[in-house]
Design a protein around this nucleic acid. Structure first.
Length: 569
RNA sequence: GCGCCCGUAGCUCAGUUGGAUAGAGCGUUGGCCUCCGGAGCCAAAGGCCACAGGUUCGAAUCCUGUCGGGCGUGCCA
């Protein structure tokens, strides 16, 4: 149940009954301080101003008109706020009737464009954020009932692949089936580039390969395909290690749109959008005119006839709207491409490619290494994602070995993987910033504060409680009785799950879910300190129910972020 | 030059169509285990929300300007 929506609806009805114009916003949100209750409605203040009425009097009339039944109590506080406090019996019922996440998104289709590594090279730390933020959104939206179509728009086309395919062809002719050389994509890429720079005849062949590829040459296409398959399998290994839900079925790379590019140009031309400038086909839109009077154009086709990322992205929008019937298309892409997307969406609008779909760029800042410096290895190269994840697991293993010597070697290894990977993902997902974010091993693995290990620990602790008490959590029945302040706060937090998830979906911001999980774990820890659970007596079953709801909330919540839990750690 | 984003506690970050006394965590200091896992809990200290104006009953939030930082900017993606 979306409690916030429920209260908001009731508050808006009451505002209208109190004399406000229909549609007056109640603005119900969590209370800013505990002494103001659980939720507060701020709408009466603004409404009173517009009506030139006394805010406290209007708020009081609203309170009098509130049809809350036994859901909550409310009162006017301060200059005209309405404080709402949920009834303990209501909270108990909400938890007892909770049958899981409500599928409020049923019937809507959302395309999410994320990860999109460049297959010319190995995945590096720069691909991490898009991959895990996109994946968390995909999982969360799916849980809410949306039909999610994952689109991994991999970079598998363009001039760079000429030299790679030419080089692979040479390597294969020399006897190596290619697999050996391609084990290290980074080295293979450097080698191809070295030849391209030093050997003019090779460079010429590489350029010829690009042309032949675009013309649909079978032989070159076969070599290209072998290269892509191997590179893609590297990516899949990273996805599997990272615990990301992407599969080969979600791949629809730049090459997939090759045959649509001429059509896009034709359609834009028919729409009267194209201008030839210095041999290139451009779209000049007035909204991209700066104070200096110049317009930053969108180049759809280069003067040599080649295509650019704008062209491919236009074709992709066209496909996603027409073929995939998307209601929303979410681009989880680096903030540095903000201008590109503003232009892309503007052109799509002009060309009618967006239909009735909402095209949204959800940007994020670059990940910086410790100390706020660019994330690089000692020799100055970009760090491979595999190396980063391996280090995370290694670091977690050290901590686990120290803190959990009671676990066997296999279990320690499993816990280290779950904790290490979870720490990396959560550290990223818990931040809202569109600006850059600083990667800090110590903070994410410190096992204190708003981190994945803290949440995983809270979960494991509840499982331990069940084991110690000989409780089969699944068999528990009944309704929890909420009594103490700690129980109230815990139950309230649990009841806020649905509204939190809907907020994540609406704004494409997973950090709201992280904040909720941290609130939940914190509320549980306080409850745990103050309310004996296993003590026999009238509170026994009720508190076990709260424990179960908390454990479920943490496990499924982390699951929506793509993070696992363990029963012991 | 033009454009976009950002500036909140020593550090990393929250702050929900503008709302009450700006909140967490880390770090610091001090408490709490004969008690369900101390990877925990409680408390204290720490802020002219970059600066200056403006709008408003009310501004970290909206507008203008200044300073500082990051990024982008017609044929890479």
């Amino acid at each position: 149940m979306n409690v916030r929506d429920l209260l908001n609806t009731k508050a808006e009805a009451a505002l209208e009954a109190a004399g406000c114009p229909p549609g007056t916003a109640a603005i119900v949100g969590p209370a800013t301080r505990p002494e103001f209750g659980d939720y507060q409605a701020n709408g009466a203040l603004g409404a009173a101003k517009r009506m030139k009425a006394n805010p406290r009097e209007l708020a009081q009339r609203t309170v009098d008109a509130m049809a809350l039944d036994d859901i909550a109590t409310c009162a006017v506080t301060g200059p005209g706020f309405i404080s709402l406090t949920l009834a303990d019996t209501f909270l108990g019922e909400v938890l007892a009737q909770d049958t899981g996440i409500e599928r409020t998104g049923a019937g809507q289709r959302i395309v999410i464009d994320y990860s999109h590594p460049n297959l010319a090279k190995e995945m590096h730390v720069g691909h991490l954020r898009s991959t895990i933020i996109g994946d968390a959104l995909a999982r969360t939206l799916e849980a809410l009932g949306y039909e999610v179509v994952r689109q991994n728009h991999v970079g598998d086309w363009g001039t760079g692949f000429g030299m790679l395919v030419a080089h692979l062809g040479d390597v294969e002719r020399a006897g190596d089936p290619g697999r050996e050389e391609l084990k290290d994509l980074e080295r293979f890429y450097q080698e191809a580039r070295r030849r391209f720079a030093e050997d003019e005849s090779f460079a010429e062949r590489a350029r010829d390969v690009v042309v032949r590829l675009q013309q649909g040459d079978d032989e070159m296409g076969a070599i290209w395909q072998r290269y892509i398959d191997i590179s893609m399998s590297h990516c899949q290994e990273v996805y599997d290690l990272l615990g990301v839900s992407l599969t080969p079925r979600d791949v629809r790379g730049e090459s997939a749109y090759n045959d649509d590019l001429d059509t896009v140009v034709e359609e834009l031309s028919e729409a009267g959008l194209l201008t030839e400038d210095a041999g290139a086909l451009c779209v000049f839109l007035d909204e991209f005119r700066g104070r200096d009077g110049k317009i930053t154009p969108v180049i759809v086709r280069k003067s040599d006839g080649g295509y650019l990322y704008h062209s491919t992205d236009l074709a992709a929008v066209r496909y996603r709207v027409r073929e995939l019937a998307a209601d929303r298309v979410l681009y989880v892409v680096d903030a540095r491409q903000a201008l590109h997307f503003r232009q892309l969406f503007a052109v799509c609008k002009e060309a009618g490619y967006d239909g009735s779909a909402s095209l949204e760029h959800h940007p994020f800042g670059v990940m910086q290494g410790p100390g706020g410096r660019p994330f690089a290895t000692r020799d100055g190269n970009v760090m491979r994602l595999t190396d980063l994840l391996t280090e995370a697991i290694d670091r977690a293993r050290e901590v686990v070995a120290e803190k959990s010597p009671h676990l066997g070697a296999d279990e320690q290894a499993r816990v280290a993987r779950v904790v290490g990977i979870g720490a990396v993902k959560y550290a990223d997902l818990s931040k809202n910033r569109t600006s850059d974010y600083v990667f800090d091993w110590q903070a994410m693995l410190s096992f204190d504060g708003n981190t994945a290990p803290y949440l995983q620990y809270a979960y494991a602790r509840i499982q331990s409680l069940f084991r110690r008490g000989g409780v089969d959590a699944e068999s528990l029945t009944g309704m929890p009785t909420i009594d103490t302040p700690e129980e109230h706060m815990l139950a309230l937090t649990l009841a806020r799950r649905q509204e939190t998830l809907e907020q994540v979906a609406a704004q494409a911001m997973p950090h709201f879910l992280c904040a909720w999980l941290y609130d939940l774990a914190s509320a549980f820890m306080r409850f745990y300190e103050n309310c004996p659970v296993l003590e026999e007596g009238p509170t026994h079953n009720s508190r076990l129910l709260l424990c179960r709801s908390t454990a479920d909330g943490i496990r499924t919540g982390l699951g929506l972020l793509g993070i696992e839990t363990v029963e012991r750690m």
